[in-house]
Design a protein around this nucleic acid. Structure first.
Lengths: 215, 215, 215, 215
DNA sequence: TATGAATGAGCTTTCATTCAT
DNA sequence: AATGAATGAAAGCTCATTCAT
C-alpha cells in the first residue's frame, strides 16, 4: 500500500523497451495517480491540514519538491481529488436517468449508485473533506455538484409521489434524510470490512425508502 | 478600536470597589463563556484550523493573550466546546431512559432529543468538527460518548424488535442510517431559518422510523 | 551601527516611568525605524534578494517573525524604504520651486538638493534598488516620482534657455546627462569619506552645468 | 511543443552522417551564443534573480538541463555575459590609445566609444547588472575592468589639463560625472528608438565636455 | 487581568543543480 | 546532446504560545 502502488496494474509481461516515449508518459501518469491516491488516503485519515506534503512525499519514497513535478500546489492536489470524486459520482449516477421505472425504483437506484461512489476514496473525499479549503471557483463547482445530487434525489421523490410509488411527504426533508444517511457512510465504512459496498447499498436502498414507500 | 474594549460592558458608573468575590467570579465565567460561544461559532463557520486565536480575540474586542487567562491552549477551547456539546446531548437524552413506552417510541424520543441537541452550536460542533484535533484522551472521551449515542439507538431498536414495535432489521445498519440523517442536519440547518428544530425533530421522528415501524 | 541604533537618540536621562503608553508607542516606532534603517542598509550593500529577513532580524538581535510585528511582508519593508526615499527627495526639492532666479540657478539648486537626497540611505535606495521588485502599484508610484524629478530638470533647463541663462541644447538629453551623473553618486559615495555631500553638491552644481551655461 | 525543439533549425534533409567536425563545433558555438544572447536580454529586462533558467530554456525551446551542456552554472552564464561585455568595451576603446590628438579630443573619443559599447546588450549588462552576484574572483576581474575605464577617463582629463585643452578641475569628480551620465544610458536607451547610439554618442561627446573644455 | 512584543516550530513553495536514460 | 525526474537548500510567512510589564 505504500510506494509504487501502480506496479500491480502495469502489464507483468515483458514491456518492449522500444516504446520509451509512451512508457515515459505512462510512468508519469501512473506516478501522478499514485500521488493522488496516497494524498486522498492521507487527507481522509489525517485531515487536509494535518497532512503535510513532506509526509505524502515520504510515504511515496520521494521528496517534497518532487511532488511539484505533478502538481502546482497542495491546493491543486485537493482540487484533483475532488474532481475525480465528482467523476466517480457522475459515472455511477449516469445510467439511472435513462433507465425507466417508478420514482421509487429510481430513488433506490440512486441510493445504490451513491453508495458505490461514496465507498471509494475519491468519492468519500467529496463529502468528508472540508470544501472551504478550496479556492472560490473550485468550491463553487463542488457545491454545484453537491446540489445537483440533492436535486436528483428530490426530483425522483417528487416523481414518485406523482406516480404513486412514494407516499406524500416533504421532498426536501426526505432528500436531506437520505443524503445524511449516505454521506455518513464515509465516517464508518471500512474497505475490506465485513460490510461490503454492495451489501450496504442493497440494505440502504430498502431501509431508507421503507418509510417513503407507499403501502 | 484599540485596547480597552470591555469597558463598555462593565457598569460605567462608580462600581463599589469592594465588589464581592462572587461577582468577580461570575464576571470571569461570563467572559469565559463568551469566548467559548464565539469560538464554537467560528470553528463551525470557518473550521478549526482556519480560525486563529487572533481572530477570535479580535471579534471579542480583546487581544490574543487575554484568551490565555481563560484557557490554557487553543486545544483546551476545543475540548471545552466538545464537553459542552456532550452535555447538551446528555441533557436532552437523559429523561428518555426512564420514560416508558415501546422501543419504537423511545427511538422516536431519541431522535427528537438528538435533533434538539444538534441544532445548538455546541451540539453541532461534536459531530461537525474533526475530533482528530483533540488530544488522545480527549478524543477517546468524545468517541466513547459518540459510541454511547449509537449504542442507545441500537439498543432501543433491538428493544423495539423484541416488543414487536419495530420490524426485524439489522440494528447496526439501521442505527447508522438514523445517525447519518441526524448528524447531517448540522450541515444544512440554519438557526432562525424556516425549519425550526422542533419541526425537524417531529418530521425526522416519523420519517426515519417509517421504514422501521412494524405495520 | 549594529543592533539598537536608536538608543543614541532616546534621552539618556531618566525617563519618567508614568508615560507607559506614549513610551510604548515611541518604542514601537523607534523599533520600526530601526528595522527600516537596517533593512535599507542591507538592501544597499547586499541587494534586496540576497538580503534575507533572517539576517535582517539577526543583526537587530531579534528573530524573523518579530519583524512581522512591524511589517506585513518583506515587500512592504521595501515599499517603505522607497516611500521614505521619495519623501527625502521631495523635502529637499520643495523649496526650490518657490525660490526665484534664472533657470540656470534653479537647475543648480536642484542639483544640490538632489545630491543631498541621494547621499542618504533612503534616497540612495530609490535610484539604486531595482524597482521591478515592487508590486505593480508601488512601482507605478515610484516611476511617477522619478519621472517628475526628470521633468523638473527638463523644465528648468527650458526655462533657462528661454531666459538666456542656458545655452540652446536638447533639454531631454541634457536632463538625462545630469540625472545620470547624480544617480551614479549612489554607486561611489561613501558616507564619512573624504568627499562630503556638500562638496559633491557644490562641485556637481558647477561641473554639470558648465556645459549648459551660456557664456 | 515538447521535446526536440532544435530539429527545426538543423537541416531537415538527410544530413551526411560524416558531418565534419568543424561543423559540429560551429553549431555548438552558435547554440551557446544563442543562450548567452537570450540570457543577457532576460537578465536586463527581468533582473538576474527573477530570471530562472527554466524561462531562459523555454524561450529557446529547449529544456533546462540542456543549458548545462554549454554552461556549468547560472553563474557561469552571467560571467560570460560580463566577459563579452568587457570585450565590447575594450574593442571600442582600443584604437583610441594609439590615436593622437589633445586630451580633450581623446576624452570625447572615449565617450563615443563608451556609448557604442553601452548601447549593446552585453555592454549594458556590465553596468546595469549587479556584480555582487559574481563569484569573488569574477567580481574582482569586473571591478578591475571598471576601474580601468574610470582611470582611462581620469588620465585623459589630466592629459588635457596638461596640454591646455581641458580647464583645471578635479579629475576624479569630473570622471565620475561623465561615467554616471554614460552608465545611466543603460537605463533609458531603447534600441531602435528615435535616439540612435551614434546620435547619443555625438551629443554626449559635446554635452559632457562642454563644461570641461577650456574656452 | 490584560497587553505588546517576541519566539519556535512548522509549512508551502521556488530553483539551481544532478542523474539515469 | 538532450530529457524527465528528482533533490537539497533555502526563503517567506503563519500561528500558538510565552513573557515582561
Amino acid at each position: 500500500m505504500r510506494g509504487r502502488p501502480k506496479s500491480v496494474e502495469t502489464p507483468p509481461v515483458i514491456a518492449p523497451p522500444w516504446v520509451p516515449f509512451e512508457d515515459r508518459r505512462r510512468a508519469r501518469d501512473e506516478k501522478r495517480d499514485a500521488v493522488l491516491r496516497m494524498a486522498v488516503k492521507m487527507f481522509l485519515t489525517e485531515g487536509y491540514h494535518r497532512t503535510t506534503l513532506n509526509e505524502v512525499a515520504a510515504r511515496l519514497n520521494i521528496t517534497k519538491p518532487a511532488l511539484y513535478n505533478y502538481f502546482r500546489s497542495k491546493d491543486e492536489i485537493l482540487v484533483e481529488c475532488y474532481r475525480i470524486g465528482q467523476e466517480t459520482y457522475e459515472a455511477n449516477i449516469e445510467g439511472i436517468e435513462r433507465q425507466g421505472g417508478s420514482g421509487l425504483a429510481k430513488v433506490r437506484a440512486l441510493i445504490r449508485a451513491y453508495v458505490r461512489a461514496i465507498t471509494t476514496d475519491f468519492g468519500m473525499c467529496v463529502t468528508r473533506l472540508d470544501d472551504r479549503e478550496l479556492s472560490t471557483e473550485a468550491r463553487a463547482s463542488v457545491r454545484r455538484a453537491k446540489r445537483s445530487y440533492d436535486t436528483a434525489f428530490r426530483t425522483r421523490i417528487e416523481e414518485g409521489m406523482a406516480d404513486g410509488s412514494i407516499m406524500p411527504c416533504d421532498p426536501k426533508l426526505a432528500a436531506f434524510a437520505i443524503a445524511g444517511s449516505l454521506n455518513w457512510i464515509g465516517h464508518w465504512y471500512e474497505p475490506g470490512g465485513e460490510l461490503s459496498a454492495e451489501t450496504i447499498g442493497e440494505e440502504f436502498a430498502i431501509r431508507l425508502t421503507g418509510g417513503l414507500a407507499a403501502k
